[in-house]
Each structure stands twice: as C-alpha cells, then as structure tokens.
Write a protein that binds this DNA or RNA. Structure first.
Length: 883
RNA sequence: GGGCGAUUAGCUCAGUUGGUUAGAGCGCUACCUUGACAUGGUAGAGGUCACAGAUUCGAAUUCUGUAUCGCCCACCA
C-alpha cells in the first residue's frame, strides 16, 4: 500500500479527475432512477470575459445542483454557452485595432471589421471556458452554444419577424437614452443614475409684444437651443393668463407658444418649464401633447450640431458656460443655485447619457410583461429567496417600450429590410431577394444590430434547438424544456430573468425555468464591492491555486443561502481548506484498515451501539443535506456536513475506533473497518456536489470492485430504519460525561496522559447499562479508571466533582485541588442551573401557560425541569461535601 | 421621492411557521510534539440579539415607531 501524503494535494487531484469525467462522458445526460430530467442553462459569460468571483460563485452553485441532481438519478443536462456581448466585444476590438494600426472601424468598413472581431473571438474567446473547467464545472460541453450560432440566429430572426408582423415590434422616432461614446441608443435598464453636483440656472424668457418676461429654472441651459415651448400649470393663477401667448427663446430668438400642462408643478422651480422635446423625456411627452416641434441639437457624438447656431461643434459643457455669459450680457441671467441632482450615465461607457430623439426599433412589452407577472404570482416560476419577486414585479408592472436597436456592428443584424424602389419596410427570417410589394431587387437591410438581451432572452429555448425542428429533436427539446432552475445574481433580474420570462412565455407558452435561485453578490471581507479602483478584487484562479478548487467551492457554497451579500474573507477559505485536509487525514487513518473491511455492511442488530450511532447521525445529515439542497440552502448543507465530519466522525467515531483497530479482536476490527468505510463512502457522496475533486479521489479507494465513479453514484437519502434517536441520546450523554471529566482534569492541570480513578454515580439504569457496555471507550477517551455505581447516601468528600443532568462525577484527588476555586466553579454551575430551573418552574406554575401551551411543549418543559432539578440536587450535595 | 434589505460574540454570518441555557466559522486564552491530521487536539472566555413601545402565558423571531447603514427604482424644472 502506498504512503499517503500528510497534506492533501489539490492540484494533482484536480488535474487528474476533470479530464476523466469529461472524456468519459460523465457530464452527459443519462437516464436514472427518477425518470425525470433536470436541466440548467448556464448564464453565458461574455466572450471578452475573465473569470471573476461572481462567475465562480454562480457556477459553483450550479455545479453543486447539477451534481446533486445527477446523483439523485435525474437525467441531468447543463448547457454551457457564451454571449457575443455586442458593446464590450466591439469596444475591445476597436481599441486593439486603433492601438496597432491607428485605424477605426469606419476605416475598415463593416464587413472587414466583423471579420476582425470573429478572428479575435477565435483567438481569445476560449479563455473563460478553460477557467470554468478549473472550477470543476460539469456542464455538457458538447451542447455548448454561442449566441451568434446558427440556431440562436434563427430564433431571433423568427421572433423579430413574427413580432414585427404582429405589430409588437415597431420603428419610431422616439426619445431614447443616447450614449455619446458608443454613439448608440441604449435601453433604460442600461442607464445608471448617479448623483452629481449641478446648479439651477434662472433665466429670463421675454414675452412677445411685451416688456415682461418669464423666469425659468433649468439645470441644462444649453438645451434652450432646442426649446420649442414654455409650459405652465393651467391652474396656476400667476401664469394661466399667458397660455396661448408667445414667448421668445433667448439666443435662438425663436418664438414659442406658452402651453398649459398638468405635468408642471406649481410649487417647483419657478412654476414655468422650458420645453425641449428633443432632449428631455418629459418634455418629449409634453411636446407630443401640444404638437410642439422637435429640434435635435446634438450629433451622435454628443457635440452640438448646426441647430446650435454659434455654438455648433462645442461640447455641452463648453456651450453651457458660453451661453451663460451671453445671457448675462443680454441681462437675461438671473441667478445660479447650486444643487445635487441625478444624472444618467451609460453603464458600459460611464459617460453622461443624453436623451436624444432618433429612429429606433422598439418592442411593446405591455402584454408580455403582465403574463410574466402572472406566472410568478401563480408560482409557475418561483424565486428563491421569494423576496426577489418584488424586484421582478417592480420592473414588469410598469413596462415601457424596450428599445432593441443598437448602432453597432457586432451582433445580430436587425432582419428588417427596406425597398429602395417603393419604400416598403418588412421583416424576414431569410434574406429576401426582392421586395414582396414591388418586386424590386434594390433592397437594403437595416444597419443596426439587436440589443444583446434580445438573443439572451431566448436562451432557454434556443440552446435546445428552438425554433429549428430538426435541432429540437436532436437536442431533445421535449425532454429538457422548460429548464429546471436558473441560477444568477440579482443585478440581472431586469436584464435577463424578466426578458427570458417575457420572451419565452410569449413564444412557447411556457416559463423558461421553474425556479430562479438568486445568489449573493461576492464582496470583500468588509462588505465592499470588489473593484479595480479599490484593488480589493480576488481572483478565483489565484484562490484555486493557493487553496484548491474544492476549498474555494466549499467556501462559496457555505456562504450561499438566501443572503444578498457574501463577504469573502480569505481566512475563511483557509479554514475550509483545513476542513478538506482534515477529511483527507481521516481517510488516511482509515486507509490501512480498508483491506480488513467487508464488502457488505452487517445488519444493524449485529453492530455495536456506537456503530449504530454514527450511522444514525449520518442518516440525519443525509436528510439535512437533501432538504437544504432542494431549497438552495447551500449554507445549511455545508454547515451540516462540516460539523458532522469534524465533531461526530473525527472527534468521536474515529477516536472511539482507535482502540478497536489497534486491538486484537479480529471480529470487532473487521466490523469497525467496515463501518468506517461505509461511513466514509456516504460522507464523500454527500460532499461530492460541493467538493467534487477530493471526494472522487477518495471514492476511488472506497468503492467496491466494479462500481462506477462517484459522480454517478446514488446520493444518500433518509432511511427510516436508521432513525435511531435513542442511540443518539445515549451517545450525547456519553459525550457529556467525557467532556465533564476532561473539564475536571483540566481544572487541576492534570496531564492528559495520566490515568485517574473516576467514579460515576447514577440511578438511571439505562444509562448505567450503556456506560457499562462502553466502559472501555469511556476510560480511553477520558483517561480514567472508571467505576459506575448507584448513587450512595454518602459521597466521597472533597473530591474534584461535578454533575450532569443524569449523573454525578467524582475524581478523588484531594491533595491536588484548590478547594476554593473548585467550589466557586461548582457554585457557578449551580447558579446557572438554578436560574434555568426558576425559568422553567415559572412556566409550570403559570396557569395561562398550562392552559395555552401545546402539550408537547409542556411535556418538554416538564422533562427539562426534572433533569434540571436532578442536577441542582447533585451540585448541592457536592457543595455540602466541601463544607 | 418610492421600494427592498440589514442591524445578533472582536470579525464574517446562521437562527425556517414565536417555546434552545441564542449558535457556527475565524480570531482570542490556557494546556497538549496522544501512533490520521499543528491545515491538529482538549478545555475555555466572550452577546441587555441597534433603540423605544405594543401583542402574547412566552419575542432575536410578530406589529408600530426611531436611528444608522446598504442596495434598487424614478423624468422632476
């Protein structure tokens, strides 16, 4: 037998097993005893992505679920994928292009540029996928899907075309969030509002044919170049007589109407609002109501255009300063009031977003949104934790048209076509050759691409072949759709969960997944977001290198329940690395005795009480693990198995087994080795979803001849016949006694080696029987020469002594004891017990409690009170002995 | 402005429908090179469960209010 290393070598084991699983097709679905499928779609990372802690957590949770369900006998499929990430990828390639050749994408032209992006993707796109393997991701790589693959292409073209024909998708001149760096529209969800310092500028707008003027406050004076109206509240006595009159926009010298609109608040600002329909969302609405013209003063790069007169070519900031100067010169500037206000910033570019009117494609999501809401309301799809459904509802109960066109090149080109002959516009699943109206062959396709989330929204179905019938058959759409669980972070509930729900419900009539588990966001140990600027980011691959993938996974799983934040402290990972090492050494201890174990477990009645006990504990833990994993409580599952392995298995069962295994009784030895092996088998099975690598490595040594890899073994479940509460109660008493003896020994600094005579007094027959039966183990673990006797009238005087609820313990060590100290200690225990008793007694004498509390609670209190009294009695007797 | 959440040991967090002597990990203290493991063992210290009320026989847990912090949403001149 080979010598095992003292510390577990994670790297060697990880690089050994992953290829075996992968090439052995263990990640592929196989039918199991459940006769049910379990499928998950991986939230596709960006091609530009690099693995971060968020991915590590997300994929650890998914992998734990997938491995768990696979072992439970579900036909399990985890579909990996990757997102083309329109903006991010295009930006990276443009940057690289400019750095190397000083060229822009416009210099290359669309076709050439896209060729470059594809090349870049081939070169760099696999990076994150390799990193995922290091985490242990057991996805079926053969089903890997890229958002710009043929099938997803078909899906988006079909949906776009269908919805265009239905009128759900339409083109409109509409005010959108314009990102001046990307030179593209972005959706509402892609705008982050940040508080910035600004100011209200009060400006006079002269009235036509009058010397009077209106004072107007604005945070953006430069937009006055696009003003086409003034609005006041029709109920405002100060101004209502002016409705219908004309004002003059300074600088632009434009005559604009004064309109009455309820939107204007009487008590805000000056009560007068300048209306700039081209560059403000509200003004756009007001403008529509009053037929005000729209003047666009911005180019796509955010510089002022020809409508800005003398200010053409300037940035907004420059123009603002100069306009204020000009107003001052004209005596139209009143005052400036500093203020804080919210300004939209592009999520990708970080630049200030300009509301700007342009022609874009929109989806009317009103109907879809309400269907999606309904599906969650009636639990067709359930959020874990449930609270997140509020976030989901908040977004979908107030739906706004979704702007789906982006002025980019990398992405799904919008399948809308324009006839140059007759001007007809239509959508088509396949590139048309002629105009369906006038037969003209002079056509062109829309230049824009679709929002990335449009394709992601169809991911649950397109990865399974939809809408291509052959592909659906091949990928077993019927079997795996809808998917079981979506695992993701809360930051993408709007972007992705909501869109998938809407789009999939609309196109298939089914929810895309039955459950959504929303996990926490990984933060640093102080709860701060990991960011480049703070330099507090943690690289999962570094963690894997230092502590092993299993330790990192266990840490992440142990931190994942229904919480919002996961504050990651590297010291915690070290702690769980130690746990893994502990298990490794437990195995190392059992290892030499494995050859003496039997293939079959003896029947329960032929086992020793403590052997039955460890199996009972294991059974409880199996139940706990199943229950916890079923409801995505990875934290509970980890805590349960962690304490079982440390406290029950290592501290007690292995320690209790040592004398037997090193002893002479071959029958006992064989039996104990067998139980140890079976316990370890169950432990590695239970742990496999969380720490797949080490568990598989151990399994290799624990399995029977001909058994398959651990990854496809049955997951342990609760077994009625192993529910042995009496065995557990006995053992708890046993443990308490040993701890008490150790405690007493420690209080006089007794060497752990020294054996000491110890007397146990108890009138509890069952307990005495049990203790007698396990006397030798008790003596070994407590280093005691033990006598167990019925409680006598006269106890030994001045002994080191204490009491549990069931017995009294005496160590006759008269000379060694610091009497005063010991008496104080006993008094302290007594005080505690008395307080406890008082509490219980108060309940028992409380009429209302006795009338109202349920029977089992009453019985429990009663029982506790008796035990407590017994303990008090014993402790008082002990104290008397010292008087 | 609206919503959601948090506040429990020095730190990071559990505590499910009210009934525990309020738990864990890390850290801390003392002792221990005991034949799996010092990435270890044994024992221990440490909490008015943010604050104030209310409901209840009984509240960390339910309700109301206050304070502090965090996040999300929102077009307020």
């Amino acid at each position: 037998m080979t010598e095992l290393a003292k510390t577990y070598n994670a790297e060697a084991v990880e690089s050994k097993w992953y290829p075996i699983w992968k090439s052995g097709n263990y990640f592929k679905p196989r039918s199991g005893k459940q006769n049910k499928s379990f499928s998950i779609i991986m939230p596709p990372p960006n091609v530009t992505g690099k693995l971060h802690m968020g991915h590590a957590l997300d994929n650890t949770c998914q992998d734990a679920l997938v491995r768990y369900k696979r072992m439970k006998g579900f036909e399990t499929l985890w579909i990996p994928g990757q997102d083309h990430a329109g903006i991010a990828t295009q930006a990276v390639v443009e940057k690289e292009l400019f750095a190397t050749t000083k060229k822009t994408r416009h210099d290359l032209g669309r076709e050439e540029f896209l060729k470059l992006v594809w090349e870049w993707k081939e070169r760099n796109g696999n990076f994150i996928l390799e990193q995922l393997e290091k985490v242990g991701v057991s996805a079926d790589w053969d089903t890997f899907c890229f958002t710009m693959d043929e099938i997803p292409n078909q899906a988006i073209r079909k949906v776009f075309t269908d919805w265009f024909n239905e009128g759900l998708i339409y083109q409109a001149d509409y005010i959108v969030n314009w990102d001046t760096v990307l030179r593209s529209a972005i959706s509402d969800a892609e705008v982050d509002h940040e508080e910035v310092k600004g100011a209200f500028y009060h400006i006079k707008y002269p009235l036509k044919d009058s010397n009077d003027f209106l004072e107007i406050a604005t945070t953006r004076p430069e937009t006055m170049l696009g003003d086409t109206g003034i609005a006041v509240n029709p109920a405002d006595d100060r101004f209502k007589h002016l409705i219908g009159k004309t004002a003059i926009v300074p600088i632009a010298n434009r005559e604009v109407p004064i309109v009455g609109d309820d939107y204007v608040s009487i008590d805000k600002g000056t009560g007068c609002l300048k209306v700039t329909p081209g560059h403000d969302f509200n003004d756009f609405e007001i403008g529509k109501r009053h037929n005000l013209p729209i003047i666009n003063i911005l180019k796509d790069d955010g510089l002022l255009n020809e409508n800005a007169l003398n200010y053409q070519g300037m940035t907004c900031a420059e123009a603002r300063q100069k306009i204020l100067v000009e107003l001052e010169e004209k005596n139209l500037f009143v005052k400036k009031e500093e203020c804080l206000h919210q300004v939209g910033h592009g999520q990708r570019s970080g630049t200030v977003v300009e509301p700007r009117v342009s022609k874009q494609w929109f989806v009317n999501i009103d109907q879809m949104a309400s269907e999606a809401v309904k599906s969650v309301e009636n639990s067709d799809m359930r959020f874990f934790p449930k609270g997140w459904e509020n976030t989901f509802f908040a977004f979908l109960r107030n739906p706004r048209p979704w702007c789906i066109s982006r002025q980019l090149w990398w992405g799904h080109r919008i399948p809308a076509f324009y006839c140059d002959g007759c001007g007809h516009i239509w959508a088509a699943e396949h590139d048309p050759e002629k105009c369906p109206k006038c037969n003209s062959a002079k056509l062109h396709q829309d230049n824009d691409v679709l929002d990335t989330w449009f394709s992601s929204g169809l991911w649950a179905q397109s990865t399974l072949g939809w809408p291509n019938e052959d592909a659906m058959k091949e990928k077993q759409f019927e079997k795996f759709f809808p998917t079981a669980t979506l695992v993701t972070g809360f930051d993408i509930i709007f972007f992705w969960v909501a869109r998938m729900m809407m789009m999939t419900l609309k196109t298939t009539g089914k929810v895309p997944f039955a459950d959504t588990y929303i996990h926490a966001i990984v933060r640093d140990k102080h709860g701060r977001k990991m960011s480049k600027s703070l330099g507090n980011g943690i690289d999962p691959l570094e963690l894997i290198k230092e502590y092993g993938a299993d330790a990192m996974r266990f840490t992440l799983a142990a931190g994942s329940g229904y919480n919002r934040n996961l504050n990651l402290d590297p010291e915690r990972i070290a702690g769980y690395r130690n746990f893994i090492n502990k298990l490794w050494n437990a195995f190392r201890f059992v290892h030499p005795f494995l050859s003496e174990s039997q293939e079959q477990m003896p029947s329960l009645d032929r086992l020793a009480p403590q052997e039955r006990w460890i199996l009972a504990e294991l059974n409880s833990i199996s139940k706990k693990m199943n229950d916890s994993l079923d409801e995505y409580r990875f934290d509970d599952a980890c805590a349960a198995i962690y304490s079982f392995v440390y406290d029950k298995f290592c501290s007690w069962f292995i320690e209790l087994s040592k004398p037997i295994l090193y002893g002479e009784n071959q029958e006992e030895k064989t039996r104990r080795a067998t139980v140890l092996r079976f316990a370890l088998r169950d432990i590695v099975k239970l742990l496999h979803p969380i720490i797949p690598f080490m568990s598989e490595e151990l399994w290799e040594n624990l399995k029977n001849e001909g058994e398959e890899l651990l990854i496809v073994q049955d997951y342990p479940e609760f077994q009625k016949e192993l529910d042995l509460p009496e065995e557990q109660a006995n053992m708890n008493a046993f443990i308490e006694i040993i701890s008490s003896i150790r405690n007493l020994r420690q209080s006089v600094n007794l060497s752990p080696k020294e054996e000491v005579p110890t007397i146990l007094f108890s009138d509890n027959e069952k307990l005495c029987q049990y203790l007698e039966l396990n006397k030798k183990s008790l003596e070994d673990l407590a280093r005691a020469q033990l006598k167990i006797e019925p409680t006598p009238k006269k106890r030994p005087q001045k002994s080191l002594s204490t009491a549990t609820e069931l017995c009294e313990i005496y160590l006759p060590l008269e000379g060694l004891i610091d009497v005063e100290e010991h008496v104080n200690k006993v008094k302290k225990s007594l005080e505690k017990a008395v307080i406890e008793h008082e509490k219980l007694a108060k309940k028992l004498t409380n009429e209302k409690f006795m009338n109202n509390a349920p029977e089992d609670v009453k019985a429990e209190v009663h029982e506790k009170n008796n035990l407590c009294l017994h303990k008090i009695n014993s402790l008082e007797t002990i104290l008397k002995g010292f008087e």
